[in-house]
Nucleic acid binder design. Structure first.
Lengths: 202, 202
DNA sequence: GGGTGTGAAGATTTTCACAGCA
DNA sequence: TGCTGTGAAAATCTTCACACCC
């Protein structure tokens, strides 16, 4: 099935929200809409596109919905990730608890400064860049998170891809060029501020 | 003029890219497209919607384009921002050089742990939460960046808005509810990984 | 009554095709 | 020739309206 990109994005948010719920059995499209910032219509449509149905007058069964969304979008599977670039941002992400909770396991960190590697306090194994390929292969790491300076980001991405990573989340503020089959996503903080600024009145 | 959201997002990226260029006088829609991950058609359309024109066979004059985009989208104006929540992520952002370069000035940081405040090494003034309102007003801070734990994020947002902030960038992984006139943007790391995972083949 | 499910209408966005120009 | 500029066509996405159900 070829889902609209926006639908995928919204469903991901819904899934995350469902994950955060406790002691809730049923939830309406309206509540979901509120949680992710859209309308009930849209949520119902998205869910219906996936062929999932709820209960009239009660809404959706939280656990069932979570399961079904997860299986439709492959979100139930645990994924291993690594972080390249262990500056402040990189080390902050190393221990970002939310990842674990949501099924993403950070299993390795890399940096090419031995100095940095020695000073980092974390339970996660951190290594020099030269071991990247081996460690990624050994651990079947599927996702690479790039938190290096911009100037080496492309090079790092190439290495990650060469090592077998399938998806890349890039925190460095430049666009990385990746081959067709790699899933690529950017997090550009400055650009987000810019996007806000562009919508301010004056 | 009421611009499509996607157009705004793309133009923001184009603007950021132009900012990063040095020694380039003219640039084609195709090059811009490559840099931001879209097509030349789309870039030309976006620029044309804004009423900006380039030069046939040469492309767009980099400086002129930067200026015009900036003035159409209010990106030439410097904006002041503050960061609330000085954990690892917050402190990483305090010194994120890219902000300065792109016209965003972080002028204050807040945390409610005196302990943390004392240990932070930075040139930026950091204060306890109770001073937030005063400092934001005094400095005419327009943007608030939230890097607190989720459970206090809404409360912090309310305080920021009460203090007069116009835009909020939320790094905590929950949706914050803000009134209509506040520009709100989320950065949810886990969700980005999820979005990647949802597009992986198996 | 208060929720879902969904085809169809409507709105928006993207893509295309080609004129125009240096 | 190689690039912009743009109306029009195509594609996509969102919203609506209403049937249906507990």
């Amino acid at each position: 099935m070829n889902l609209p990109n926006n639908t995928i994005a919204r469903i991901c948010k819904v899934f995350g929200y469902l994950n955060s719920l406790e002691d809730t059995n049923f939830i309406s499209s309206k509540e979901l809409a509120l949680a992710i910032g859209t309308t009930g219509h849209t949520v119902r449509k998205d869910i219906s596109i996936l062929g999932i149905t709820g209960y009239t007058r009660k809404g959706y069964d939280v656990n069932a919905l979570k399961n079904e969304l997860g299986s439709k979008l492959n979100l139930n599977k645990k994924r291993k990730a690594c972080i390249v670039g262990l500056g402040r941002l990189g080390t902050a992400l190393l221990d970002y608890e939310k990842f674990q909770k949501d099924g993403f396991e950070i299993v390795a960190g890399f940096d090419n400064s031995i100095n940095k590697l020695e000073r980092i306090k974390t339970d996660i194994k951190v290594s020099a860049d030269i071991y990247m390929k081996d460690i990624i292969k050994e651990n079947s790491i599927e996702l690479g998170i790039i938190t290096t300076p911009s100037k080496v980001a492309q090079e790092v991405a190439d290495k990650l891809i060469d090592a077998g990573v399938k998806g890349i989340l890039n925190f460095s503020p430049i666009k990385i060029v990746v081959s067709e089959h790699i899933i690529y996503q950017e997090m550009d903080f400055t650009n987000s501020l810019r996007f806000i600024a562009a919508q301010l009145e004056d």
